[in-house]
Amino acid sequence: PGLLEPTSTLVRVPKSASTLGIAIEGGANTRQPLPRIVTIQRGGSAHNCGQLKVGQIILEVNGVSLRGREHRDAARLIAEAFKSKERDYVDFLVTDFN
């Protein structure tokens, strides 16, 4: 990638625990327009996966963009992706750049 291109990473989180175990802040019409990971709880699926990091911005969940979604809408989308029995994982497209 070029030096000025923002980099994004696709992280597949297997549903290895009963909770996803992340806390997010942000969403449309707030200071943080895309959801940012603020906590990763030990023992949750995200922690077990080991690839999500505090501070990363979530761009997409299972290929669905979070751009323009308000906080509660983004949180609901992530919660439903984790709860859904369609897949035994959740795909996150994340970036380290804010």
Partner: peptide, 15 residues
């Protein structure tokens, strides 16, 4: 007159 210069902070949700 007060003017909002920045967007409000977000709530935090545990998932």
């Amino acid at each position: 007159r007060e003017k909002r210069l920045t967007l409000p902070p977000s709530e935090i949700t545990l998932l």
